[in-house]
């Protein structure tokens, strides 16, 4: 009996430091972005916490799929309500001589999904899946 207690204590000691998380509580967030039914590739998806804190961002892949990253090695976003911006804009890059180095990407997503966003989602602990079906016709 005493020996069991000793072994249990030893096991507990050996696992010191293995548990307990550093940093704030995050919820994993993934989903798909479509524009008029077509998957939207190369779009930046940004979740801004309404209560303040660090924005979590991701870029959509060819299938329009994204997975948010909070910081290096930390997937997800802060818990709570977020306001969401989705945009494709990338600025045109000119060289010092005025030549076009990179033509950039125009904004395909209407302002109601980025600069004047109405999109809001609440992130909970664990896995969160949000699909955004954007409409550029109205």
């Amino acid at each position: 009996m005493k020996r069991n207690a000793f072994l249990l204590g030893l096991a507990l000691l050996l696992t010191t430091g293995c548990f307990g998380s550093s940093g704030p509580q995050l919820g994993k967030v993934h989903g798909t972005v479509t524009l008029d039914g077509q998957p939207l590739a190369g779009a930046t998806v940004a979740f801004d916490p309404v209560a303040g804190g660090r924005t979590s961002e991701a870029t959509t892949d060819a299938e329009g799929h994204f997975q948010l990253q909070f910081a290096a090695g930390a997937e997800g976003a802060l818990l709570g309500e977020h306001s969401i911006r989705i945009h494709t804009f990338q600025a045109r890059v000119l060289t010092d001589n005025g030549k076009v180095q990179d033509p950039g990407v125009p904004e395909k997503v209407p302002a109601k999904y980025n600069d004047e966003t109405e999109l809001k989602r609440t992130i909970e602990r664990g896995e969160n899946n949000f699909d955004f079906d954007l409409d550029s016709t109205q």
């Binding site: 704030p24 940004a46 924005t55 600069d115």
Partner: peptide, 10 residues
């Protein structure tokens, strides 16, 4: 800290 309040909009 990398958790500093930071909104990435313009």
């Amino acid at each position: 800290a990398e958790t500093i309040d930071h909104n990435t909009n313009s």
